[in-house]
Amino acid sequence: MNNPRLQALVKQVLLQVFLLSVTLAVIFPILWMVSIAVDPRNIDKPLELTLIPPGASFESFRQVLFEPSPLLCSNPGDVATCMTFGKLLVNSLYVSLGTAFFAVILGASAAYAFSRFRFIGRQAGMLAFIALLMLPATATVTPLYVLLGQVKFASEPLRTTLLGLAIAYTSGTLPFAIWNLKGYFDTVPEELEEAALIDGASVTQAFFRIILPLSLPALAVTVLLGFMTGWTEFVLAWLFLDNPARFTLAMALRSLQGQFTTPWSIFFAMALLMSIPPVLLFFALQRYIVSGLTVGGVKG
């Protein structure tokens, strides 16, 4: 065992065995979903552990993608008013991107103040935002429902619009966003801004040209978390939206879970399709995630 190359080999093998078993545990539920989704029998569980069931087909994917959902129609008698995957996807993207956008704009601006200014009420303000992370929001839906019902936007109550939903979700993601962004901004050296100010830039310019570009990782994390909230939340969505034309993918998925029966192949086909955008976004932003979440924590 004193041979260093042998030692390295043994270590590599042990690591690979460990990491491969973790990989197996991670992808097993996903393979299980695939296996049910491609099963033509539309049963709730495969009768045995096989990835590709007999007679596998993409029929359920075709149905999800191209056929209208009979459960989500503005007018149940008229198929043309039923939601299709495309329309649901557009609504989901609207809410998720809206949430991500608001979270990053409002979060960065507030976090900048907490990071760079020493002002009256700084401690109290920071504490207030952190305490919000702890408030269980379940019972506040009633007042929120009333409140957003009062505010009119383009002659509609804000409550029933996707914009209202995005705003409500933003308030859920902001506390963590501000806390995380502030930690990251703290690590950007103040000398850089001071140099820009001496060169005649305004504070706002320094913020946009120096702080923001240097904080891409933390901004990416904020976008990611905002997007995920908008993409997966459905409790508020169910409660607030009245018009099926505005329903989101998460709501459509939830509606497939019937009280007595669930069309499992279709359900998992839709679940898999719905997982693709967030997974792609994670992959696209992956190089930012690690530093975006930890740099502030390590230093702060």
Binding site: I105, A110, A113, F117, F119, I178
Partner: peptide
């Protein structure tokens, strides 16, 4: 100035 930055959020 600081509160102006925090105002929207």
């Amino acid at each position: 100035r600081a509160w102006a930055y925090i105002l929207p959020a």
